[in-house]
Design a protein around this nucleic acid. Structure first.
Lengths: 128, 128
DNA sequence: CTGATCTATGCGCTTTGACGAATACTTCAG
DNA sequence: CTGAAGTATTCGTCAAAGCGCATAGATCAG
């Protein structure tokens, strides 16, 4: 049944943790938006809610998720709570992903317009 | 960049797409494992299923998700289908995240052991 | 203390996504 | 054609996650 070896590798465990913290944290468009907003400058909850156009409870919950992932930092200041980007590397990560996506769409377009053949490389619907 | 304005921004749209493709693709521990396996060398479905210890349909489904995200490539070879990492940058991205997580845990440990004070910076349960 | 402001949380609802099991599809050998 | 090996997909089920709404909690002015 298990010719090689079962998953409970050390890598598997680390990736489990990575998923639970970081991957889940960035798996939401609104949270990505929040991260980029905080990259400009720290903000408090209502500020984010107004600028992004989402209700305050929604923002609070998303911030909680980002906090859980260690991507942002809290800091009370009077009645407001200032959230800041904790580790700017996450922006670099996201920017790299955006580049990858950009390149992917480019190449897909190239292949698509050329001899329309097999679609072995995913299909970015030009929809949105 | 557009510091402050309603959501339907161009950035928001791009992040929507980024989320739908890449973020979702990496939002699963098994898929992370698959990506690292494919980083070693291309493999076919059953190979991955046996090495990782998951049923073949599960692997196929996850591969479909990765394909949708443009992270892997398909290539039929007889009756088998070889999957390869399409863009190695994703590994760099994941490794960066792992580093961030490592640093986070470190600092958290430092702060925790020191004067146990506020917990504004997420809480990596040392559990696992 | 009281009210105002800002933030977090509880609840019910709905959607999404992963899984196991079974099965259809594809390709090739004979 | 027939069977076998490899892969993809369908179906039903279940748990997780986001949202709106209302509300509880925290903080400060007066």
């Amino acid at each position: 049944m298990t010719p090689t070896d079962p998953p409970p590798t050390q890598l598997a465990q680390e990736l489990d943790l990575l998923h639970d913290r970081v991957c889940r944290a960035i798996d939401d468009p609104k949270r990505l938006l929040i991260l980029y907003a905080l990259h400009e400058r720290p903000r408090y909850v209502v500020e984010l809610a107004e600028e992004l156009g989402f209700p305050q409870p929604t923002i609070s919950r998303h911030l909680a998720a980002l906090l859980h992932g260690g991507l942002v930092t809290k800091q009370r200041q009077g009645q407001t709570v200032i959230y800041s980007l904790r580790d700017a590397r996450i922006i670099g990560v996201l920017d790299t992903m955006r580049e990858m996506l950009r390149d992917l769409v480019e190449e897909t377009a190239r292949v698509t317009s050329a001899g329309a053949g097999a679609e072995e490389r995913a299909g970015p619907d030009p929809g949105a």
